[in-house]
Every structure is written in C-alpha cells, then in structure tokens.
Design a protein around this nucleic acid. Sequence first.
DNA 1: CTAATCACTGTACATTACGTACAGTGAAAA
DNA 2: TTTTCACTGTACGTAATGTACAGTGATTAG
Lengths: 198, 198
Amino acid sequence: MDERRARIVAAAREELLSERRFTLDAVAERAGVSRVTLYALCGDRDALLEAVYDDLAASGGLLRIPDAFAFSDNASALETLVTIFCHFYSVHRSLIRRLHALGAVGAGELAGHAARNARRRNILAALLHRSGVDDERLLDTLQALTSFAFIDELAGPGRTPDDVAGEVANLVGLAVADRVPGGSRGRPAEQGPESETT
Amino acid sequence: MDERRARIVAAAREELLSERRFTLDAVAERAGVSRVTLYALCGDRDALLEAVYDDLAASGGLLRIPDAFAFSDNASALETLVTIFCHFYSVHRSLIRRLHALGAVGAGELAGHAARNARRRNILAALLHRSGVDDERLLDTLQALTSFAFIDELAGPGRTPDDVAGEVANLVGLAVADRVPGGSRGRPAEQGPESETT
DNA sequence: CTAATCACTGTACATTACGTACAGTGAAAA
DNA sequence: TTTTCACTGTACGTAATGTACAGTGATTAG
C-alpha cells in the first residue's frame, strides 16, 4: 500500500529529526510496521534516506521557482530565486544536515542529489542566459553561493532565515555585478529598510 | 611508543584516502599493529578520526598564517589569508571530505572542529579589527566564505586550487568593499559609484 | 641472575545494526 | 473454496565496534 510507504517515510523523517541514532528498527517501530515490510516498500537504508530526500523536495517549497522568472527585472528575478532556495534550506535545515551527515548525500553520491544539483545549476544558468550572460565561472560561483553547504554555514547558530536569505542575495548580486558589464543592479543601501518584494 | 601512534594515524589517513570503507581493522592491518594496540594508543573510532584531523592541521599548511599579517595593506593581508586557507583546503580536500562524511566533523560536533572554526573566526576578526571594521555580520559572511564547505562546493569537479582561491579572494573582497566605507580595495569597481555610505 | 614492568599480541566475547529467508496469518478476490 | 496478496514474527548470517584476558618478548630494577 502506498499509504504505508508514506507512513514509513514520514516516520523516517521524524526519526531523523530526533536526537537518537538513526536506525531502521526505530523507523519501523515508529511507523507501526515490521522491518521486513520496510525493506519491501522502501528498499534498504540508502533507498529510504533518498526517499526522505525526494519527499522533502517534492513536498513543496521549491514549487515557487517559476515565480522568479515572472520578474522582468533580472536582478529581482535572481533575488527571488535565491530567497526561495534559502527559505527551503532554512526551513528544512536540520533534516538536510542529518541526511548529509548520514552519507545519504555527498560521499554516497546518491543519484538524487547530483540530479538536484544539476537542476539548480540549470535554473541559474537559464536566468543568467536571460540576462545575456554566459559565464561558466560565474555560474560556478552562484551555484556554490546557493548551495546548502554554504547557506548552512552562513546561518550558523543564530541567524534568521530572512537574514541569511538577504545576505546570500546580496552576495549573489555583488558577484554578478562584478562580472556583468551593464550591471544595473540597484541594491538598496544597507541601513535602509528592507524592501521586501514578496 | 609515539612512533607507533604516528604510524597508526598515517595508516588511517591512507585508508581514508582509499575507496574502501573505513574500518579499524583495515587501519590496524595497514599500520602493522593489532587492533587492541590501536585502541590503546588512539582511543576509539572518533578519537582516531580526530587525531587524523589534528595531524592534518598540525602538519603544516596553516603555519604561514602569520605571513598574512605582515602586509600593511589590509586588502592584501586578507587576500593572502584567504589564499592560505584555500590552498590548505584544496590540497587536503578529499581527506577532509571523507572526515566530514564519516561524521567526524559536523554531526558529531567534535571538539576539534568547533575549536578550529573559532580560531579561524578569530583570525578573520583580528584582520578586520586591524582595518578598523567591527561588523559581526560581515564576519559571519567571511567565515562562511572561507569555510571548507563553501570552498569544496566551489571547487566542484574541475577547478584548480589557485582558481578557487582567486575566486574566494575576490568574493571576500567584494563583501568587504560592500560594507566598509573607506574600502581601498584594488578591485576595479564597476562604473556605478554607489558610495552612499554614511 | 632473577624478577618485575612494559608494550604489544592474539583470541575470544558481547553488542548492535544491517539485510535476507522462511513460514505463517488474515483478508480479499478468483 | 482456493488462491493470491500484503504483511508479520522469527530467525539467521554478516560486519564492525569496543572490551577482557592471558600470554610473550624485551628492557629495566633489585
């Protein structure tokens, strides 16, 4: 049953957010399911972790990406895009952290992660291309600036998601302006009130 | 014997760089030592990993940090500092990556990592302070930009250490110039004279 | 010369978690 | 009624961690 599978993934998610060591037994118990069923429905450990990751990405947050392209102003579009990513990462920060730490992402080089990275790169590239920019190096930089690793690092212990998003957006803007000739980037002065263009 | 311990740490290092799964048995065998001895000399798994991390940091590369402070020009000093960090991270990239992936750093929150992070922050703060800047937020940004996570992300698959170092130094320079009033940064500013800084 | 200490070895054991095999059960469909 | 299906409980094999214990060879102390 699909609903059973969903329950298992949800249980895994909760278990990941707990302090305890991540164990399939614990997940199965929390989901009210035998461990054998867990293996049958979700595959092995790595498959389950990837399922959690997929579920996370699919469960919203990144759906608003097309909104960014609605802006005719390239700078605003880029800023919106950055904000969407930052928000997503900030909200699910501890979960993604845990997934990274468990090797679901990174060392394991799970297919899903690479694919998502490539997708993010494509989105950034599209936006850059729309601005008439074709700079691989800049693209690398933007990719790194909008990566979870960087945003997580920047967030540190005490920093609000909005704060982090603003900082990343600012850095992205600076990086772009540094490389694009006609950079019509109208970044507001720092002491000025945040012009939240929701 | 101290020399035995060093051999174990070296063996662990080599084992980490191999593709194989990291196992104490393998380390002991490679070091030509019984596993019991390994436990006696290096403690448990986490302790061994931290020992590798310590050994890495101590074995040079970060020794040139004082050089950065020799520059009277603040921009050059900062750039030198960034280059030192980048170089260190780039050279030992795969090893540090593996250590991260194994949870020696991050989830485990090993004492050594937090301490080293704090130390890096202090160094950056000192340099900033010397420049007459006291901006916690900027400090956060520089810390994130010079973190291993970001540099690793930026390096991607095909990028030379020098290339990465240059890019990070550039970003650091931009971030500083964006916040410091008398930013005498040699970086060519774009035509937009956004000197609205108080 | 003998004894004691020391560093290390080999083996063996308990523990935990993973992944799989197998037989069984209750319900729904043929 | 029989078959199929989804799931359960149990049990097993494997791998790795960490610890206990007895023993060995060399160096040092008495």
